[in-house]
Each structure stands twice: as C-alpha cells, then as structure tokens.
Amino acid sequence: MAVNPQSTKNMFVRIMNINTSGQTAGRSLPLWKQLVFQLIALIILASVMFPIMYIVTLSFSSITTRPSKLELFPKEISFVAYRQVLDRPTGNPVTFIELLRNSFMLSMGVGAAALVIAVTAAYAFSRFKFKMREVLMILVFIPLLMPAVGLSTPLYLLLNQVQVKECKSGETAILPFTECSDGGKGKLQFNLRDSLLGVGIAMTASALPFAVWNLKGYLDTIPRELEEAAAIDGADANQTFWQIVIPLAVPQLAVTFFLGFIGHWQEFVLTWLFLSQPKDYTLAMTLYNMTGQYANSIPWNRFAAMAVIVALPVAIVYIGLQKQIVGGLTTGGVKG
C-alpha cells in the first residue's frame, strides 16, 4: 500500500488512494485511447452499479407486488417499505429494535470479548521468549484452519447440555451441574444453546484465536525502542505493557474490534443453527428469511429496504477503515 504523507487530506480522498497532488501532467492519453478507456470504464461502472441501483430502486418503491420488469432508476422516492420494515420486519412478533439490538449485542460483544481476552496473549507471543512458545502458538493457530461450520457440531452439543430447569419440587436445577432431586424431567427454563449468550460463546470460540494472531502480527511491527527505554527507566513488564504498548496499539485494537464487528454482524451459520426463538433473531437471519424460497411471501420492496439497512453499518465502518482492513487482511491472510 502506498503511504500517503498528507494525513490532513479528507478521509474519502485518502481511502480511495486518489492522487490529489495535481501531478497528472506528463504524458496524457491520446484521444482515441482516452475514449476507448472511458468506454471500458463505463461498462465496468454499469456492471458494478447494476445490483446496487436495482436494490436501491426497489427499496424506494411503494409497489408491493414482485417486480415484473427491470427498473434501475427510482421512479418514486417512497419510504413505505422502510417504514414497514422498521415497524414490523417479519411475520414473527419481534420488533426491528429487538433485531437490531440482538445483532449489535452479538457482534459488538464478541468483538470486544475476543479483543480483551486476546490482547495479553498476543503481547506475550510478540515480546517474550519462553518454553513451549512455538507449541502454544501452533495450538492457537489450529482452530483458525477450521471453518466456522466445522466447529458448530461440538459447540451445539456441548452448549445444549447446559440447561436451567424448574423441577416439580420447586427447586431449580442447572444441568449438567445439578439435577432435579426426584430425577424428573422438570420444565425447561433456559437452554444455553438456544440463547444469544450461547451463540456469543460459540462465536468467540473462533474469534479469539483470530484476534490473538491478528494482534500479535501488529505488535510485531511496533518498534521495541520505547519499551527498552522504559525498561531502562525502571518500568517493569506490566507497566510497559499498560502504559507503552497498549496506547501504541490502540489503532490496531480498533481495527481488530471492527473486523470482529463486521464479521459477526453478518454471522449466519451459528445463529441460524442455534437459535430457534424469533425474539433472539438477528438482522442477518431476518434478511435470509426474506430471500429465495421465502421471497414469495415477502414484498420485494421490503426485502430491498432490509438489505440496505443491514448493509449500511458495515459499509460505514468499512469506508472509515478501508485501508487498515485491506492491509491487515492481506498480511493476516499470509499468516493465516
């Protein structure tokens, strides 16, 4: 990535890596070439905009029947679909705010939890030499090879065994730690698997190793001079960590957090597998419920409005952090 020295330039210009220094002089394109290039660029532009214009147009339409012919430019700006989605997103008795809250709680909670737990481990791997270092690092790396689906079976089974039951005798039993004294089945009050907390735990299982590796990769790039200077001044390892390293790493901590947020905002595999109660549904699950085989019962303008709503938070975060994310992903991709 080219490093742009002028950090005062506005964000958009920096993100797009645009040359604003005015040094476009030099050879200019011959006209025929310019025209050919413009034609190609416009065709690409049209292909990129095609689905975006399609869905935006659809979302601003008030027509609730399915689209019978292609429209790529809004004929009307109606917020009916948005209002309906915000009002009553699905046939289930669950409000938009609840869906939004579930999505935010999951994605932010998992992002934050993974970050807080991972940061000290990343520091240890980056800065200390100790016995078993290599072995432990490989141990952290192993789960990264497993796609999310691959871990879902054991997590489903294990979390499903943690249940709270109300026994006939009135006491509450927490399985698998305590059981009803009469051995009876009791009434199920809470199943960790079928809860946002359980899904959050399952997501953290793979988010945590990723956060450790991602942060370690970044800490490796922070020069050690400052820490060495602090050590000479008599700071111990803990002080160095909290007062030197953490403040230096804040940008990367933010990127790791937002990567977690983006990834889990659209998490579908585990939520769709684990959650059965509509009150726990997330926006991503709701969007799936409006698609494909389900699309026949949902007006498409509502589906389109929902798609725009789900896409917006991620798009905003991504535009703000694009450079760091692309850089981090490619280096992270190499390291796994």
Partner: peptide
C-alpha cells in the same frame, strides 16, 4: 471510477448473496 469500483467490497457478503439470490 475508483470511488464506485470500491462499492462491492464495502457491502457485506451476506447482503450481496441475498440480493443476487433474488
């Protein structure tokens, strides 16, 4: 062009998948 061409990267893949499904 650069600003527009970046848009697909910005949209979450889950939304891309559902939109293309329809």
């Amino acid at each position: 062009y650069r600003a527009v061409y970046i848009l697909p990267v910005v949209v979450p893949p889950l939304v891309v998948a559902t939109v293309w499904t329809n």
